Amino acid sequence: MSVYTRIAPVVEIRGAVKHYQAPEGHVVRALDGIDLSVGANEFVTLLGPSGCGKTTLLRTVSGFEQLDGGELLIQNKPMNNVPAHRRPVHTVFQSYALFPHMSVGDNVGYALEVQGVGKTERRQRIGEALELVGLEGLERRKPGQLSGGQQQRVALARALIDRPALLLLDEPLSALDRQLRQSMQRELKKLQHELGIAFVFVTHDQEEALTMSDRIVILNGGLIQQIGTPTEIYDRPANAFVAGFIGESNLFDVSVVAVNAGVAQLRSEQGDVLHVPATQLQVGQKLQAMLRPEQFQLDSVGGNSAALEGIIEQTLFVGKDFEVSLRTAHGMQVKAVIRDTGRHDLHRLQPGSSLQLRYALDGVHLLDEAKQ
């Protein structure tokens, strides 16, 4: 469990179930017994493929959808039957949902006006909210007079104006171009840290999730596949789905064929051999072995290491790195990412050339095949 949830859980979800009737007549379980806690000042990202349940989970927390089973607590108060407008939660939508006929200031202060907050106080709080997101002085503009990034900030200011306990963000950066999106990622994370508000963020962008999150929740088929920090999710995926979904992976079905002097030999289905530390491994055990492409090097990686050798089928230059596709003598396909900023090893990366890819033994992550 995260240190955030041990100290101060803002949201607790216990056994959450949500199902829909599909047009074909069968029942789709969008959420199938979800347990999740979100701590104060924690940035949690819900990540997974389309239809995995991440948006449904967000909407049940916001109150726009009601759970069919399970419990939802916000600040230790039951919320199952509490309508959206009475929850201490605000949502920033992908579309921003700004009123085009209203000024920026009126959009930001709309909720305060509905609450009956006086004009003087409302004006002050609108100014503070706009200053918070770097839009001071733009109160009189209409949304159509702003860039996409500025509109996103207006939506954020509107959501933050009364400092909710929890902010939900449903792919709010997806409409922005890459450079602006990266800039807003940094600003959003900084703002969240400064305000001390818990953020629950939905995205389909893996890089975005790894960059911004304190913890990532990987969902698939209405189930949580893994919860962890970005480094835990990336370096130690819980199963083959997570390993294949996050980043790029070389996944090999292997069997333990020998254990000697603290080193285990793993043979792939094709016949290639990998070496790993022998911790608690037994001959005959069937596993899946994962090696990230960037874990390969052309030369010694120091300490205990081994190598895979084969013929280069393709080399792609992708800026600072070279992506190399290699096929071993037994027919196993291996992908490697090689950094060669000095271009000293270009001659070794030509298609058709024989190449040896070295890896550290402890860089191989093993997945229990029985759990897949």
Rank of each mutant, 00 (worst) to 15 (best):
Q21M: 13
G149F: 08
V17E: 13
T328S: 15
R186C: 00
T56E: 08
L219D: 09
G262F: 07
G70M: 10
A278T: 05
A360Q: 13
Q295L: 13
Q152S: 06
Q124H: 09
D32H: 05
P351T: 11
Y4P: 00
G363N: 14
A329Q: 13
R87V: 09
Q226T: 07
L57C: 09
Q350Y: 00
T55S: 15
Q21V: 11
R343E: 15
S2I: 01
Q150R: 03
I216Q: 02
R348L: 14
L367Q: 06
A16V: 13
G331F: 06
L191W: 11
G247W: 01
I74Y: 02
A258V: 04
P100Y: 12
G319T: 10
Q150M: 06
L130W: 03
D299Q: 13
R141W: 10
N81Y: 04
E113A: 15
A306I: 10
A165K: 06
G134V: 08
V256T: 01
L366F: 10
P351I: 12
N239S: 11
R186A: 15
G137V: 10
L287F: 05
A40F: 02
P164Q: 09
V82F: 06
L46V: 06
R327I: 14
F241R: 01
L308W: 04
V200G: 01
S2V: 03
P293K: 03
